[in-house]
Each structure stands twice: as C-alpha cells, then as structure tokens.
C-alpha cells in the first residue's frame, strides 16, 4: 500500500509541477510578473522621500544664505528677514526637554536592566514606557498645557520642553535598556568578583560599555523631538522675537514656523517655510544617519 502510493505520487503530479522552467511556463511567468510588480511598488513607495527632498532643495535652497540664520521672522506681507529666532528656539526647547528626559529615561533604563529583571513592577514600568511611545504627540501637548500652562498662566518655553520630554523619555529608556542588557554578563561578574558594588559596576563597567547604544537612543529621540510640532502648538506657542533667556515666555520653533507660514497667503512667508523645512530636515537626517553609524559599529566588531 505504502509502496504503491510512493510510486504513484510522482507520476500523478509529475507533468503538472515540472521542475523545468521555461519563459512560457505559466508559473514562471506569474512569478516574474509578481516580482516586477513588487519591486516597482517598492520603488514607488520610496518616491515621496525623493520628491520631498527635491522640493526642499529647490524651494528651500533658494533662500539659503547667512542672513537666514541671523534675522528675525518677517511680519505679514514684509520682505526679507530670516528664521534665526526659530532656530534658536528649537535648540532651547530641545535642550530643556533633553535635560528633563535624559536623567529620567536613562536612570529608568538602569532600573529596568539592572534591578527590575522580570519582576512585576519592572514589567509594569516597561509596559508604561511602551504605551508612552504610542501616545499621540498632541496628547503630550495637552498634558503640558493642563499642568504647566494652566498653573503658570502663560504659554512658555518650559511648557514646550515638558511636552517634548514626555515624547523623548520612552525612546531614551527603551533603547538604553536594550543597550545595557547587551553588555556581556561576564564583564559584570568580573567586577562583582573584584568586590565592586552594583552601583560601581553599573557606573564603571556597564554604562561605559553600553555608551554607543545609549547615544544612538538619545540621538533618535532628539531627531524625533526636533521635528515635533503638535506638542508645541499650544505650549511654547510662537514668538517673533529673539529668545531672551526667560523660560516662562513663549518661544519660536522651526516646526511651528513651518505650520504657521505654510498656510500664509504671502509668498515670501511660504518660501521661508520651505527654507525652515530644509534646515529642520537637514538636522534631523544628520542625527539619524549618525545614530545609524553609531549602532553599526558594535555589530561589526
């Protein structure tokens, strides 16, 4: 019975599923057609990136000059001016949020990687961080509005920094945790064997070894924060003047500038929106590419 099945099977399916591939064969033809379709769809999917970059270089590049970075944003209908206050403002807001997010995210990661393990509390913290990564960025703005803007009574750079920090914390935390976990346990054991406390081991062995991975996470978080607009709209608001060192006043930012000027009826403001986009995308892409290089190195070793 078994023998018969064995000898019959190839005979029954033989002619249908021939191993020979000719161009005219329906299966080969279908296979090639799908391959061509899939590869062209992939190229089509990448088209928007190139279209965006092309537009940025053509329309944004036209205004690129040193005065773009040294002059204030022009009012409605005015010519000239630049985006200097917005560049400074973005840097200030991102600096505030980094100061808030780095310690919290990083030490949170140390807790998860070194002390938490599989404990219930650690699982809860990890879950909270994952939920925070999926939090719509505008809700971070709503939170900062409710806590900072309402209590201090005004829109401010500080409120913008707080909103942004909420978006940075989970990224910093989760990437730092995986970088800390990737440190070989042998190195830690050696440190413990020498009589080092856990704090010494973490500070002198684990963190220095994990630094490239941690930096990657920080840079990705920075790149994400730079481009965020929604959390700044009603926290940092905007300002047509230079930052004067007061964190309690509204502050300009590149992303809000792009949003405000994109809908402007004045051609010059629209052009400035493109120039600001070019500057913003350049910073973000540089951060992203650097981050990718930082992660690649340890893999190659």
């Amino acid at each position: 019975m078994a023998n018969a099945a064995l000898t019959q099977a190839p005979a029954a399916t033989g002619p249908r599923t021939s191993l020979r591939r000719t161009i005219g064969n329906r299966r080969t033809l279908g296979n090639s057609a799908l391959t061509v379709l899939a590869v062209s769809l992939t190229l089509l999917a990448m088209f928007p990136l190139f279209s965006v970059l092309y537009m940025l270089i053509v329309r944004g590049g036209a205004l690129l000059s040193p005065s773009l970075f040294t002059e204030l944003t022009p009012g409605a209908g005015m010519e000239g001016g630049g985006i200097g206050n917005a560049v400074v403002g973005t840097l200030v807001v991102v600096a505030i949020s980094t100061c808030l997010a780095l310690p919290l995210g990083f030490l949170g990661a140390v807790y998860l990687a070194e002390y938490g393990g599989d404990r219930k509390l650690a699982t809860l913290v990890r879950f909270a961080a994952k939920v925070l990564t999926g939090l719509p960025s505008i809700l971070a703005g709503v939170f900062a509005y409710a806590t900072v803007v309402v209590t201090t009574g005004s829109f401010s750079a500080l409120a913008g920094g707080c909103a942004m920090a909420i978006l940075m914390i989970p990224t910093v935390m989760l990437t730092s945790e995986s970088a800390l976990l990737a440190v070989p346990s042998k190195m830690k054991m050696a440190a413990f064997g020498m009589g080092a406390t856990r704090a010494q081991t973490v500070l002198r062995i684990v963190i220095p070894t994990a630094i490239p991975g941690i930096l990657t996470g920080v840079m990705l978080a920075l790149a994400r924060a730079m481009g965020e607009t929604a959390p700044l709209l009603f926290t940092a608001l905007f300002s047509d003047y230079w930052f004067e060192g007061k964190l309690t006043q509204p502050i300009a930012s590149l992303s809000v500038l792009i949003y405000n000027f994109a809908g402007s009826p004045f051609e010059h403001q629209v052009s400035l929106a493109w120039a600001a986009s070019l500057v913003l995308v350049s910073i973000v892409l540089i951060l992203n590419v650097t981050a990718q290089f930082a992660t690649r190195r340890p893999e190659e070793q």
Binding site: P48, L49, S255, I258, Y259, A273, W274, V284, N288
Partner: peptide, 15 residues
C-alpha cells in the same frame, strides 16, 4: 525607508 519616518510630519504637511 527608515528615512521616510524621519521626515517631520509638518514637512509632509507642507509638501
């Protein structure tokens, strides 16, 4: 493809 995600959404809006 990863860079597609890096472009800020406000720039996509402008585009």
């Amino acid at each position: 493809v990863e860079l597609l995600a890096a472009i800020p959404s406000v720039v996509y809006g402008l585009w």
